[in-house]
């Protein structure tokens, strides 16, 4: 089963139309990966779909980096009883 990190990178690559191998854990969604505000919303929606979770909008949209997203999603999965 792919790791949370791999899945986060896959979703990010699909939404932002990037190569997953080019995405690093320290990358900032906006300044490094070029995400615009509308794409942040799409990313949040696709993360929820990928992991089968429900995220608080304010908390999710305050996440800035790939590493932050991995940490946040892992925490939400744990809270909501989703195995990852």
């Amino acid at each position: 089963m792919p790791t949370v990190e791999q899945r986060v990178k896959e979703v990010t690559a699909r939404v932002l139309k990037l190569n997953p191998e080019d995405i690093k854990i320290e990358h900032d969604f906006m300044s490094d990966l070029g995400a615009e505000s509308v794409q942040s919303i799409e990313l949040m929606a696709m993360f929820e779909e990928e992991f089968g979770i429900e995220m608080d909008e304010d908390a999710a949209l305050s996440v800035e980096t790939i590493g932050g997203a991995i940490e946040f999603i892992t925490m939400v999965c744990k809270e909501q009883g989703v195995d990852v």
Partner: peptide, 16 residues
Amino acid sequence: AWFLDGVVTKGFGRKK
């Protein structure tokens, strides 16, 4: 609804 890019989304949520 936050209607963006042709679809209904949760957007930035109701607080905004």
